[in-house]
Amino acid sequence: MAIFPVCGQEKGVFWKISGNGLPSSSYLFGTIHLICEQDFAMSGQVIEKLAESKALVLEIDMDDPALRMALMSNIYNEDGQKITDYLSEEEYQEIKSFLKERTGMDMDMLKTMRPMVLMSLIYPNLLECDTRAFENELMALAKSEDIEIVGLESVEDQLSLFDLIPLEEQYRSFYTYADNLEKGKEEFRKLIASYREEDISALLDLVSESPEYRDYKDVLLDQRNQNWIDPMESLMKSGSMFFAVGAGHLAGDTGLIQLLKREGYSVERLYL
């Protein structure tokens, strides 16, 4: 398993950003996008700091009315490529049976669906529990306090990243997950355990070694982290911001914590 230098910040999912001429402190909260109900917890300090902030800043603005339309228009492969172009007939039949059994959906109707969308259909099967999403809970809190919700990147930016990964590899990752669901479940359990322990170094390793990230950490994590620094700085100059991004983006030499420190900010762990 790859080891990435974490420069002494192996633990902590909640951080205060200050200094470097900022008018007020901002906050960085690492989330896990889907978690079992019984494992979900949001500390009073997180709620308090969000309430004090000028805006909730997510990876993408999930409150944008245009988001659903953008997602709907990107569900299928742009040039009509099909999953059957990349898997053998035997592999395809396995996937078809799996999806029918697990979701009731007919794979024959979804052949041109993007691999990442197909992946999202099986995520609930990896958890086998009632789930909650930190982003949804944070947005509900922000709305109750009349706090603006913005994004660090557009949905088009996020989707375009996957265009850099050959479709064959994306479909192969999807098949790998579906073909060995028990392994996927075990990885998810480790991910949730690491998150609860606030072990962001272990989280980075787990995310980096997952099939869809393994060979593309530089594109899906490192480059996005770097791309986010400028908009983060611009937003923080206008007041206190509450950033909430996947916890896999925090640790490591190319993670947000170290990148912000290199820009001259003080980044201090807050204990939940």
Score class of each variant (00 low, 15 high):
residue 2 A to W: 12
residue 4 F to W: 08
residue 5 P to K: 13
residue 6 V to R: 03
residue 7 C to L: 14
residue 8 G to V: 11
residue 9 Q to C: 12
residue 11 K to A: 04
residue 11 K to I: 14
residue 16 K to L: 08
residue 16 K to G: 10
residue 17 I to R: 05
residue 18 S to F: 09
residue 18 S to M: 03
residue 19 G to K: 07
residue 26 S to D: 04
residue 26 S to W: 03
residue 27 Y to C: 06
residue 29 F to C: 02
residue 31 T to W: 05
residue 31 T to C: 10
residue 32 I to K: 00
residue 36 C to A: 15
residue 37 E to N: 12
residue 38 Q to M: 05
residue 44 G to W: 09
residue 45 Q to H: 08
residue 46 V to Q: 07
residue 50 L to G: 08
residue 53 S to Y: 06
residue 55 A to R: 15
residue 57 V to G: 06
residue 61 D to K: 00
residue 63 D to V: 00
residue 63 D to W: 00
residue 64 D to L: 00
residue 68 R to A: 09
residue 71 L to G: 01
residue 71 L to W: 01
residue 73 S to N: 08
residue 75 I to N: 00
residue 76 Y to N: 07
residue 80 G to F: 04
residue 83 I to P: 03
residue 85 D to K: 00
residue 87 L to A: 00
residue 91 E to P: 01
residue 91 E to T: 01
residue 96 K to P: 02
residue 97 S to N: 11
residue 98 F to H: 10
residue 101 E to Q: 11
residue 105 M to D: 07
residue 108 D to I: 03
residue 109 M to I: 03
residue 110 L to S: 06
residue 110 L to G: 04
residue 115 P to N: 05
residue 118 L to C: 06
residue 120 S to F: 07
residue 121 L to Q: 14
residue 124 P to Y: 11
residue 126 L to Y: 08
residue 126 L to R: 03
residue 128 E to N: 14
residue 129 C to P: 04
residue 130 D to L: 06
residue 131 T to N: 07
residue 131 T to V: 14
residue 134 F to Q: 01
residue 134 F to L: 01
residue 138 L to E: 02
residue 141 L to C: 07
residue 141 L to Q: 12
residue 145 E to Q: 15
residue 148 E to K: 15
residue 149 I to T: 15
residue 150 V to A: 14
residue 150 V to K: 15
residue 150 V to I: 15
residue 152 L to Q: 10
residue 156 E to F: 11
residue 159 L to M: 14
residue 165 I to N: 10
residue 167 L to D: 09
residue 171 Y to I: 08
residue 172 R to D: 13
residue 173 S to H: 08
residue 175 Y to N: 05
residue 175 Y to R: 03
residue 179 D to A: 15
residue 179 D to V: 02
residue 182 E to F: 08
residue 183 K to P: 00
residue 184 G to S: 15
residue 185 K to P: 10
residue 185 K to Q: 15
residue 186 E to I: 13
residue 186 E to N: 13
residue 191 L to G: 03
residue 193 A to I: 08
residue 194 S to F: 10
residue 196 R to S: 14
residue 196 R to Y: 05
residue 198 E to W: 12
residue 200 I to D: 05
residue 211 P to K: 02
residue 212 E to A: 08
residue 214 R to Q: 11
residue 217 K to C: 13
residue 220 L to F: 11
residue 222 D to Y: 14
residue 224 R to P: 07
residue 225 N to Y: 10
residue 226 Q to L: 11
residue 227 N to R: 15
residue 227 N to Y: 12
residue 228 W to E: 02
residue 229 I to C: 07
residue 233 E to M: 07
residue 241 M to W: 01
residue 244 A to F: 03
residue 245 V to C: 03
residue 248 G to A: 12
residue 257 I to A: 05
residue 259 L to W: 04
residue 265 Y to R: 00
residue 266 S to M: 07
residue 270 L to D: 04
residue 272 L to T: 12
